[in-house]
Design a protein around this nucleic acid. Structure first.
Lengths: 128, 128
DNA sequence: GGGGTGAGAGTAACAGTTACCGTTAATTTA
DNA sequence: TAAATTAACGGTAACTGTTACTCTCACCCC
């Protein structure tokens, strides 16, 4: 049987913060926001719950583009754009190429479960 | 004028190690290999040169899929497959989708310079 | 209410990476 | 080719993001 997991106040707050933001925040940013709602929350708790939520598929961890992980409250696969100047992450509104996994599986013989794609360049504000 | 940059024995060794391997090693693995050729090389020197070579476009830094960076001596863009069991990285021999950057640029308005794609799943050895 | 236990707070430890500083050696100039 | 210049070196300490530890708390079922 699956391990029991409780929905604590802290975990709920962390999940809601991620679901209600369009940015792709770091653990530290989540911690700062969570402190406003649960003043004595611990940074360790934030990290623990981010990992728990990631393992249960409720959020996505984005660990590329910089030295720290960012988190995304939308668990559906989608692509991202990383601005090389301001280091912000943006969602890219193009459809996920569903057939790609099977194509790579047929080419390589590996069992392909999913893929990720990121685009790099300059965002609108940083273009000039 | 561009800053002068020297081709030292250490830098040369690091670049050759990366160009002559098919794996996608960590800085530490490169360090171990380099020590065989330059016994008193320092880990700091390995990191410094990996960053220099990455900045000059001679190698690629792959900073996703685990807690440490891996390096790839082939600077041409290509896709990678990450085995979620044995944590090895493999090259994927499908052509890079060149038109994608332009398509995303037209969709988003961002200036797209390049993209990366990684596939996740199980490699041949880990499938059974 | 009492016993069991998953999760919390607080903090120490850890890993990968970077920065510092005195020294060495690659390159330039003569 | 020898001297001068200075980027890069080796060795090490520090830094950063993350995880682990320990003790305590709060929830749940009877």
């Amino acid at each position: 049987m699956a391990k029991a997991t409780r929905m604590t106040k802290q975990k709920k707050v962390i999940l809601e913060i991620l679901q209600n933001t369009n940015c792709h925040p770091s653990a530290d940013w989540v911690y700062e926001q969570a402190k406003k709602l649960v003043p004595d929350i611990s940074l360790g708790t934030v990290y623990r719950n981010l990992n728990v939520l990631r393992d249960s598929g409720e959020i996505i961890e984005l660990n590329y583009g910089s030295t720290y992980s960012r988190y995304d409250g939308k668990p559906q696969n989608h692509y991202h754009f990383y601005c090389e100047k301001c280091t912000q992450l943006f969602d890219v509104a193009i459809p996920v190429y569903q057939g790609l996994d099977k194509m790579v599986q047929d080419t390589t013989g590996y069992e392909v479960k999913h893929h990720r794609m990121e685009f790099y360049g300059l965002c609108n504000q940083c273009r000039e």
